[in-house]
């Protein structure tokens, strides 16, 4: 057990699984870096933000494969390799690049098992960075997990901390279905205690990071930390919140969400993805349908506006949900008074 960053936790998960299982391979753009460069340096980058650093040195070019910048071919290759005996972890760098290879994910990997009558296993992990906050603008900042969540056959993981990231990534690598594993790029330097040993966190089991009586907060990925911070502030005013980190958007732990809403009667959902057809709408629909009677106030969603992610710092700050907006949403549902029937 020691303090590890989000980046280190992911690197350690990859390293431990590659040591454990020779079928686990890594591929992606510059996952090592330096191939064919004039300096002769290999492992020059170890991923664009250094997450896979050192793996090439340990496992060599057969298992850490730099790819050309051709997402369709290598993501498709990862799917094909997964269906034929390897356990690839393919890095898509920025999830925004899924536009170049959605077919390989959506029409191929996700559907093999069903289309082929249960005869296929596709133990594929696609890692990608998501999230705003780095002034990376509209094509490098999106939170696209709802797109993948929408596709049957995929599992979708949105880890909220270094501990969560390591356990969920090892689970993803050992899983026999295609898994999309999304890392918020702003969190790579976040640190917490992470066991040195390998461990797994099961999919579809939400984590309650706070337990309270008044409001249930459901938050995803980086937003979990924001929700916890808001809950701590609100507790000072006697408003106690449950904070749910679903960990995976597919499968989704609906039972825990419904249980908590049944206890608190109020729901605020915090989602970094664009507001239409995102996880917030999905959870809101679930609760409206299954727990209508438990609700004491309307469901509130805290999301960005329906715009591309802007570049300028001032605009990006306005765009992203923050602790203050979460706090305000909770206060508004606490202050809700039902209209009296005449």
């Amino acid at each position: 057990m020691s303090k590890k960053s989000f980046r280190q936790a992911i690197n350690e998960a990859l390293r431990q699984e590659m040591r454990r299982d020779p079928r686990v391979i890594l591929m992606g753009e510059d996952v090592a870096g330096g191939q064919g460069g004039s300096s002769g340096v290999t492992d020059a980058w170890g991923g664009v933000l250094g997450v896979t650093k050192g793996l090439y040195t340990e496992f060599g070019p057969e298992r850490v494969l730099d790819t050309p910048i051709t997402e369709a071919s290598y993501i498709g290759a990862a799917a094909g390799a997964a269906a034929t005996g390897l356990r690839p972890v393919a890095e898509l760098m920025f999830v925004d690049f899924v536009g170049c290879c959605l077919d390989q994910i959506m029409n191929q990997a996700a559907k093999f098992r069903y289309m082929f009558g249960g005869k296929a296993r596709t133990p594929l992990v696609i890692r990608a960075m998501y999230g705003a906050g780095f002034n990376a603008a509209a094509q490098h900042s999106q939170a696209l997990y709802p797109i993948f969540t929408h596709i049957p056959g995929l599992k979708v993981v949105v880890p909220s901390s270094p501990y969560e990231a390591k356990g969920l990534l090892i689970e993803a690598i050992r899983d026999d279905d295609p898994v999309i594993f999304l890392e918020n790029k702003v969190m790579y330097d976040d640190e917490e205690e992470v066991p040195d040993e390998a461990y797994t966190i099961p999919f579809g089991e939400a984590n309650l990071t706070r337990e309270g009586n008044d409001v249930t907060l459901v938050a995803f990925g980086r937003m979990v930390g924001f929700a916890n911070e808001a809950a701590d502030r609100l507790a000072k005013d006697g408003i106690s919140c449950t904070v749910i980190d679903p960990r995976t958007t597919s499968p989704l732990d609906s039972a825990t969400i419904l249980d908590c809403v049944a206890d608190t009667g109020r729901l605020v959902i915090v989602d970094e993805s664009s507001p239409r057809c995102n996880m917030a709408t999905d959870v809101a629909a679930l609760v409206a349908e299954e727990a209508f009677d438990a609700l004491k106030a309307p469901i509130r969603r805290v999301t960005p506006p329906h715009t591309p992610v802007p570049f300028a710092t001032v605009l990006e700050k306005l765009y992203l949900p923050d602790v203050g907006r979460i706090e305000a949403a909770v206060r508004s549902v606490m202050g809700y008074k039902a209209r009296q029937e005449a």
């Binding site: 494969l65 369709a72 071919s73 290598y74 993501i75 498709g76 290759a77 990862a78 799917a79 094909g80 390799a81 997964a82 269906a83 034929t84 005996g85 390897l86 690839p88 077919d103 390989q104 029409n107 191929q108 093999f112 289309m115 082929f116 005869k119 296929a120």
Partner: peptide
Amino acid sequence: ADLARGMLGANGIVGGGPPLICGAALS
């Protein structure tokens, strides 16, 4: 499709097969 016979599937997407075959060849 019949993976046991090395048949990775007919494919409804034009150009769907070649990337998959890169992966199978890698295996």
